[in-house]
């Protein structure tokens, strides 16, 4: 089960660039006290340095950095973008769902990754996540 609450979800966020999208997802974690602000910069830097591989599947980006970049507790936020954004991935672009992930050690966030992979890998659930107008329903699906 994902360690999520409604404040860690955002529907139809407006971003023009990959960096803006990553920052929106990061701000949710920051506001909920899950990370230091340095972690947001680290996620953006990681994206710029090691590239668009964080687009793990069609439409889905999972920005993250490392525990030492400022994670207080293992966490995830999920943002659905109003308009898809290009991250520079040759096959999986453009991105609509952005899930920022943080872990406090090398393994603690495995459950988060597994839960996320289960939810987003389920085509029926993923379709609903793309379409629902309701944050409540969105949360029910991801939990």
């Amino acid at each position: 089960m994902l360690p999520i609450n409604r404040n860690l979800l955002k529907l139809d966020a407006e971003a023009q660039t990959a960096e803006e999208a990553i920052r929106i997802a990061g701000e949710l974690l920051l506001t909920e006290g899950k990370i230091e602000s340095s972690y947001i910069d680290a996620m953006v830097r990681a994206y710029k340095e090691v590239g668009p591989y964080i687009v793990i599947a069609p439409m889905i980006a999972v920005p993250h950095a490392r525990p030492e970049h400022g994670v207080k507790e293992k966490c995830v936020s999920i943002v659905r973008l109003k308009s898809p954004v290009l991250f520079g991935h040759p096959e999986n672009d453009p991105v609509t769902i952005v899930c920022a992930i943080g872990g406090t050690d090398d393994v603690g966030h495995i459950e988060v990754l597994q839960s996320l992979s289960t939810v987003l890998g389920d085509e029926a659930k993923f379709e609903k996540l793309l379409r629902t107008e309701s944050l409540e329903e969105f949360m029910t699906i991801v939990m």
Binding site: Y53, I54, R66, P67, H109, I110, L113, Q114
Partner: peptide, 15 residues
């Protein structure tokens, strides 16, 4: 392998 050895590489290892 992934960019940081922390995200996608762990997902792949589990798979």
């Amino acid at each position: 392998v992934c960019g940081m050895g922390f995200g996608t590489s762990l997902m792949l290892l589990m798979d």
